[in-house]
Each structure stands twice: as structure tokens, then as C-alpha cells.
Amino acid sequence: MPRDNEQTGEFTPKILAFCCNWCTYAGADLAGLNRMNYPADVKVLRVPCSGRVNPQYVLKALQSGCDGVLVCGCHPGDCHYSTGNYYAKRRMMIFKRMVEFAGLSPERFQIRWISGSEAGKFRDTVVEVSEQIRALGPMENDAPSRAAIDAVAGTVASPEADEELFAAAKEAI
């Protein structure tokens, strides 16, 4: 895994951004259309809706070599599927607490709402998150928590966790 820039020796983080097709992905396209410049540390993975993002994907990313994960969707109230981002919000907020409980720096997993017209906000978010993760350094720096993440990965699909999640999500709408 080439983690450092060969010329400068600088750490280049790997950040994965789950972006919903209708808002954030469109915002990212618009940033391109406007020729905005931002660091290449963040790669976008297209999903139909932020509500499609399973916490297991995030765990998978953190377990297998990503230094940070972003989940982005439409602003609350603007979901193309009317309620998907509300579910995503509750789901990811609870999951975030779990990830932080496992000892991960909060910056490593973030949730942002970016609309299809907010190209500037997309660029700013990428710049900001990239800088934060660069400051934190590679995932290995949160070394003790790697094991914890693996442990979390084992529990996330448990019925208890889902029960709480489901109750909270139901309450949200």
C-alpha cells in the first residue's frame, strides 16, 4: 500500500465518500463543471440514496485500509425519496457513536448534507475533511481502535442494535 507520496514523503490519506445520486453526486459533478480544484484524497462512491448506505460498508472501508469515510446526502427535507436521508441521519448518528466509542477519532467518520447546487460546499467539504485526516495521519495511528472496529463489525448486525435503530428511525418520521 503506497501510503506516502513518493516525491515529498507526505502522507496521502484514503477517504471514501458515499454520495447520493440526486444531491451530493450532482453537486460533485457541478464542482467539476465549474472546474473547482480539490485534493484527490477523496473518491466518490455513488449510491442511489444516503439511506442505501449500510453501516457495514463504512466498517468495511475502515477495516480494509481507508483513513476516513464520508456519508453525504440531500439536505433534510429535500430527499429525492422523501425520507431516505432521515433514516440515514439517525442510523449514521447512532453508528457514529459506536465508532467513536470504539476509540476512533470523530473526524474519521463524518456525515454531511450537500445539495446538487452546492458545488462550492462539496469542494469545501472535501478540502476540510482531507485536511483533518491528513492531520490525524493514517488509520494505524488509531491503532488500538482497529481491533475495536473489528469487534464493532461483529456486533453491528445484532438484533439489539437494529431494534434501537429501527425505533429511532421510526420516531424520526
Binding site: 449510491v47 425519496y81 433514516y87 437494529d162
Partner: peptide
């Protein structure tokens, strides 16, 4: 095709065609 149900599904029976779990993983 929003996929909200796929994440809510505990046994993992529900999947979204075109954006399936295995593909994203």
C-alpha cells in the same frame, strides 16, 4: 429503488438490484 429497506433488513434478505450489497462491498 432508494434502498432504504435493504439496510433495515436484519437477515439481509432485501437487496437493491443494480446497487447490490456485494457490488458495493
Amino acid at each position: 429503488g432508494c434502498g432504504a429497506c435493504t439496510v433495515a433488513c436484519r437477515p439481509g434478505a432485501s437487496d437493491l438490484l443494480g446497487f447490490n450489497d456485494e457490488g458495493i462491498m
